[in-house]
Design a protein around this nucleic acid. Structure first.
Length: 260
DNA sequence: ATGGCCACCGAGGGTGGA
């Protein structure tokens, strides 16, 4: 079973890339962030034509998350982590007995901003939701764009005064992991950790990146992981000729044993 | 060159992303 997280930076602009990804990588579950569209504009038909189901939580212009899947999801939670009513940053559903929680964590902008406090509050709520879900679903994956680097090694330029890297947000991430989750990235096996590269300054070409797209798995899932990979080929302009403009994030995939 | 910001809204430049 292949499970993927991908911040696509507009689901409609990136639709050709998404369809190519489905056809080429054949994920069982593809979780998207930053849809940036209202429900009526979500490309449901194109996904159905490609043989996939979808559940989505949409809003105008900003945010938006969805889960695209071969099988229909069960016990769907739309926007379970919610502080500001119109922010759609979370969605969860169960596929073949595996609970998938898809987050687009608040960016936070700078550590002195109100948005940073909002990020920390949002992470507190997320932690409460995850702890509840872990009691209900021992086979669980929390994934998405966390906008936090777990370790210094996950940032090309690490500074504890900068957003993505600061102590309080990394502490919040660690307390979520401490609920009983494991980071699917394995430094002993997986070489280049980065999942996001700024559009500016040729950052991808120079490999100036950050690991902020994470998959966190409960113990039952974590011990059944066969593969973890960052699909960096999707960041090349030549990868999808129908849409050479790429997302600034690469998809991150885990493959787990089918029968766990 | 496997490259050099992008997408949103709305009609142009401001905003947010990370």
């Amino acid at each position: 079973m292949k499970i993927v997280t991908w911040n696509v930076n507009s689901v409609n602009v990136r639709l050709p890339n998404i369809l190519k990804y489905l056809n080429e990588y054949k994920p069982d579950v593809l979780c998207l962030q930053e849809l940036k569209c209202i429900e009526e504009k979500y490309p449901l038909e194109a996904l159905h034509d490609a043989g996939y189901e979808s559940v989505q939580s949409c809003q105008k212009t900003y945010n938006g998350v969805s889960i695209i899947s071969k099988a229909k999801g069960q016990n769907i939670d739309l926007n379970p982590v919610n502080i500001i009513d119109d922010e759609k940053r979370s969605i969860a559903a169960t596929y073949h007995g595996v609970r998938i929680i898809n987050f687009y964590v608040v960016n936070g902008q700078t550590i002195n901003s109100d948005k940073y406090l909002h990020k920390l509050n949002w992470l507190d709520r997320a932690s409460v939701y995850i702890s509840e879900q872990l009691k209900l679903y021992p086979k669980l994956v929390v994934l998405g764009d966390f906008n936090i680097v777990p370790r210094k090694e996950d940032a090309y330029d690490f500074s504890s005064n900068d957003i993505l890297c600061s102590d309080k947000e990394r502490d919040a991430l660690q307390s979520i992991i401490s609920l009983g989750l494991n980071d699917c990235y394995n430094e002993k096996i997986n070489e280049s950790p980065y999942t996001w590269w700024d559009y500016r300054g040729g950052a991808f070409h120079r490999d100036i990146g950050y690991r902020i797209d994470l998959l966190l798995a409960s113990k039952k899932i974590h011990k059944s992981i066969k593969k973890y990979e960052v699909n960096k080929d999707t960041r090349h302009k030549s990868w999808c000729k129908e849409q050479p403009k790429t997302s600034d994030h690469a998809p991150v995939m885990i493959e787990i044993e089918n029968h766990i």
